[in-house]
């Protein structure tokens, strides 16, 4: 690993955090989309059941929201993502041999 600086300029710092957001976005989506698992079903309790229109709006809002955030992140990061190598984000620590 080449030596890395501990602190970055403001610009690169912002860029890193946006890359973090790109990475975390699917996790957020997954969490929100798993909420329906907790909803009461009509089979269990007919009165408490969530109506389909509400459910539709919830699920599609998340969908649009994720798409929108993804789009904004693309607008903000598209210049740097293309040329970026993965040096900054060490997912793969080499195996000790």
């Amino acid at each position: 690993m080449p030596e890395q600086r501990l602190f970055l300029e403001r610009r690169s710092y912002r860029m890193r955090r946006m890359m973090d957001a790109i990475r975390l976005l699917p996790v957020l989506g997954l969490c929100l989309w798993l909420v329906p698992v907790l909803w009461p079903r009509s089979a269990d309790d007919a009165d408490a059941a969530i109506s389909t229109s509400t459910a539709l709006m919830y699920i599609f809002s998340i969908w649009m929201g994720l798409g929108l955030i993804s789009w904004v992140l693309w607008l903000r990061t598209r210049r740097s993502v293309a040329g970026q190598s993965d040096q900054s984000t060490v997912f793969d620590t080499p195996e000790p041999r």
């Binding site: 329906p36 698992v37 907790l38 079903r41 009509s42 059941a49 109506s51 389909t52 229109s53």
Partner: peptide, 13 residues
């Protein structure tokens, strides 16, 4: 939609 046969949430978690 809400008035129909599939008007409430009925998907198993």
């Amino acid at each position: 939609i809400d008035a129909s046969a599939i008007g409430t949430w009925e998907v198993q978690g």
